[in-house]
């Protein structure tokens, strides 16, 4: 019996995982969400920015991370447009170009933000740290035009923005090592304030930077996105998905516990 339980076909586990996602997707629930300090810090920082400030939002991720990072990008954009904070969108990842431009456009349409006045999407340039350092001297030396080909000099919100000196905050939406690169080059050399929204895989490695203040806030994966939506009182995919996620986590935790019970019982028998 025990051996059978240990040798269960992995496809049965796959079916259980699918069911744990499908059932709550069809029958959604709404559990209370507690907000962590790093998420609140970023939210409060943006809230405290005076109207007319400019922030930079870096879409440094590809489709493999959109489930976690798109909800937080939407929430951040909504907050900025509602607060009259201007947004410069850029990306260090080629795949981030299409996603970033579509997302900004989508939220701008919802909130009535105007291209060139409330936001601008600059697009992508290869070279990561070279791009970051280049913008530190002069943004136009790296991005002569925005993604639509309009010269930066002709964009109203960019007339007074030359480099990081006029940018209040950089938020890096990251699925790889880009946050460390932003910290190493933009924060250290140009004193640019940095916050991050990251995928689950890299949450843990961000904490040393949070403690030193090299990151002023952190949104952690889909849980962080749900927390941000809670703070804005604007429920969307983040809250919906973290509730569904609850059941899958319960299932996986249950599988770990059952697997270990079976393991210990078997080991005792063998002894």
């Amino acid at each position: 019996m025990l051996e059978k339980l240990m040798d269960i076909d992995r496809r049965i586990i796959f079916i259980l995982v699918v069911l744990a996602v499908i059932i709550p997707t069809l029958l959604p629930i709404n559990l209370p969400i507690s907000v962590s300090a790093p998420t609140r810090q970023l939210h409060d920082y943006i809230n405290a920015l005076p109207a007319g400030s400019t922030i930079m939002l870096a879409f440094d991720y590809g489709p493999a991370s959109l489930a976690e990072l798109n909800p937080m990008a939407k929430a951040l954009l909504k907050q900025c447009f509602d607060k009259d904070v201007r947004v410069i969108g850029i990306t260090l990842a080629p795949e981030g170009t299409a996603m970033g431009s579509t997302l900004i456009q989508e939220i701008a349409d919802e909130t009535g933000a105007i291209d060139g006045e409330d936001y601008v999407f600059l697009g992508y340039r290869p070279g990561e740290e070279l791009v970051i350092l280049g913008m530190g001297s002069d943004i136009a030396s790296v991005f002569e035009t925005d993604y639509n080909g309009k010269p930066l000099a002709d964009i109203p919100m960019m007339t007074n923005v030359t480099n990081y000196d006029q940018i209040s905050l950089l938020i890096d939406l990251a699925s790889g090592s880009s946050t460390e690169i932003w910290i190493t080059y933009a924060n250290v050399r140009y004193n640019l304030q940095i916050a991050a929204g990251v995928t689950g895989v890299i949450i843990s490695q961000m904490y040393p930077y949070l403690q030193t203040g090299q990151l002023i806030g952190l949104i952690s994966g889909i849980a962080g996105a749900a927390e941000y939506e809670t703070l804005l009182d604007a429920p969307a995919k983040g809250i919906l998905w973290i509730n569904i996620e609850s059941f899958v986590h319960l299932l996986i935790a249950g599988l770990v516990v059952i697997g270990n019970i079976a393991f210990f019982v078997q080991r005792r028998k063998e002894e």
Binding site: V21, T25, V201, I203, K237, W241, E245
Partner: peptide, 19 residues
């Protein structure tokens, strides 16, 4: 802690595809 967070990330991708 990295494993626990990674589980959250991968499951989120699955939920998005099922959605």
């Amino acid at each position: 802690s990295a494993f626990g967070n990674t589980v959250m990330g991968r499951v989120a991708l699955l939920i998005q595809r099922v959605d």
